[in-house]
Design a protein around this nucleic acid. Structure first.
Lengths: 108, 108
DNA sequence: CATTATGGTTTGTAACACAAACCAGTTGGC
DNA sequence: GCCAACTGGTTTGTGTTACAAACCATAATG
């Protein structure tokens, strides 16, 4: 078993970064959200949310669908299958690494 | 109760960043380490470890003591009281936020 | 007295997070 | 009809950051 600390240092920053962790976790809980609702949930500024979403879409973790509701635009957001797997795996990995760090003994 | 997602987005990046999370968690498990031992535990490059430590020292989370063992220099590292509190709090906060996100219902 | 090893620090740079400025369409006041 | 203000975002500009490569000082080695 490799050191848990080494794995901590290698955590995927695409998912781990606070704003994106919030976005992915929120979408995981919501299953569906539009842009402004997600903005309220996460407390991010519009610009910031927009660019994080673009990054997550480029990595194929989030699906961005622009629709019109009546005549107003509305951007519909959801996790891709990869996105859902990634956020679930990340939380499990954090939990796992924390436990392993607590159990860890210098004797390696 | 505020949204857990908003708090996720506001996580303290000083502690949350993967390399520093590894450093603080390792020092928390070790209670004591020298520079090279910590480098092996975390797998970080020397330069990277050095600059992260400098940042943690500036924030008074880590204590850096340069000694001589025989004639060779050796940098002794440990958490300050604030550092220990910060890393423990951070892990608890992550755990707490994850649970709240899982329990979360759209009805707010 | 070169060379190599030890134990780090400093420097350079590409990427990043963020808010401010912007933009296109829409509704409301008059 | 026309100007203002609002909605729903995107693009731009900028200071910060994470990282490795280059560097530095001292010490043991051939």
């Amino acid at each position: 078993m490799p050191e848990p600390f080494e794995e901590l240092a290698e955590l995927d920053r695409l998912v781990h970064e606070p704003a994106r962790l919030a976005i992915l976790t929120a979408l995981s809980a919501c299953r569906t959200a539009d842009f402004l609702y997600l903005q309220r949930l996460t407390g991010l500024s519009k610009g910031n949310l927009s660019s994080h979403l673009a990054k997550l879409e480029a990595a194929e973790l989030v699906r961005i669908e622009k629709e019109f509701v009546g005549k107003m635009p509305s951007t519909h957001l959801s996790l891709t299958r990869r996105g859902r797997a990634a956020i679930e795996r990340h939380w499990k990995e954090l939990d796992d690494l924390r436990r392993r760090a607590l159990d860890w003994q210098p004797a390696t």
